[in-house]
């Protein structure tokens, strides 16, 4: 009885896992097949090779796109880590006038959808001469209310005695932050950093309207570019680029899974 139940459970797990993974697995499989086989509907073909990847790298700018995404996501990640940490530190550890008011002003930006700000932002970035450039793709995202909030929550968990202790042994503010607070809250910091990277690697709308050339175009918009170009029917190559683009974030997710499980739940996310 117990054995039967367990078997059913496994069968269910495997079936559903296959179903959930199907789009991804099929995509990976197709990326290994020659386009001729795909078009002919020969999915059971065994002609697998990495030729599509080689072709993607040689004939499309996908590597450049990925490099752009890496630069953009990393810059935003570092920017947010610094800017959000500083603000969260002030809200968690400092006393100042209008603290509640300013905190509220930060929080309220979580209510305002970025989609409603793109038109003026586009105009601002154009006026700054930042269209189709790294600054235009990164600087608007150097802070996030969500990040400030999440880090503040973590910082508030730092026992007050650690602040007192750091005063006793003569640590300055910045030292307290870097040598005690950040290591103490490092699991939240890691979650935050991974999440920021993931979010901005996957960003679509903003790069769509502000990049016009391959020089600064990041991966997600690059996918649209490739899909709408002459390669349109070369399914093998298209799938290979899509897999290349999703691989870094998939790896981050697999490695950082446990952080997301704990961290996101506690803070409450998704921007």
């Amino acid at each position: 009885m117990k054995y039967a139940k367990r078997t059913i459970h496994y069968v269910l797990l495997i079936l559903i896992a296959l179903l959930v993974m199907a789009p991804l697995l099929l995509g990976i499989w197709a990326s290994l097949l020659p386009t001729t086989d795909i078009v002919a509907g020969h999915f059971n073909s065994l002609n697998i090779s990495l030729n599509n990847y080689v072709a993607a790298i040689q004939t499309t700018p996908v590597v450049l796109y990925m490099w752009n995404s890496l630069v953009i996501s990393s810059l935003i990640m570092v920017g947010q880590l610094i800017f959000c940490t500083l603000a969260a530190y002030a809200f968690a550890f400092l006393q100042f006038r209008f603290k509640n008011g300013i905190f509220f002003a930060f929080l309220i930006t979580m209510m305002l959808p970025f989609e409603a700000q793109i038109i003026p932002n586009f105009q601002t970035v154009r006026a700054l001469g930042w269209l189709d450039s790294y600054p235009g793709l990164t600087i608007p995202f150097f802070t996030s209310a969500f990040g400030v909030f999440m880090l503040r929550q973590a910082f508030l968990q730092v026992p007050r005695e650690l602040k007192e202790y750091s005063d006793l042994i003569g640590l300055g503010r910045l030292q307290f932050l870097t040598r005690i607070v950040l290591p103490y809250t490092r699991s939240t910091i890691i979650t935050f950093v991974l999440y920021t990277f993931l979010t901005h690697w996957n960003a679509y709308l903003w790069p769509l309207i502000t990049t016009f050339s391959d020089a600064h175009r990041p991966t997600q918009v690059g996918l649209k570019q490739l899909q709408s170009e002459d390669t349109f029917n070369n399914w093998g190559v298209i799938m290979a680029t899509a897999i290349m683009v999703l691989l870094p974030t998939l790896l981050i997710l697999i490695i950082g899974q446990r952080y997301f499980r704990k961290g996101l739940n506690a803070g409450g996310v998704k921007g």
Binding site: P159, E161, L162, E164, Y165, D167, L168, I169, G170, Y184
Partner: peptide, 16 residues
């Protein structure tokens, strides 16, 4: 505090 040259032991120990 740092200029008072004293040491303190906290109830929750405040170890890092």
């Amino acid at each position: 505090p740092k200029d008072r040259h004293l040491a303190m032991v906290f109830q929750n120990y405040a170890l890092l």
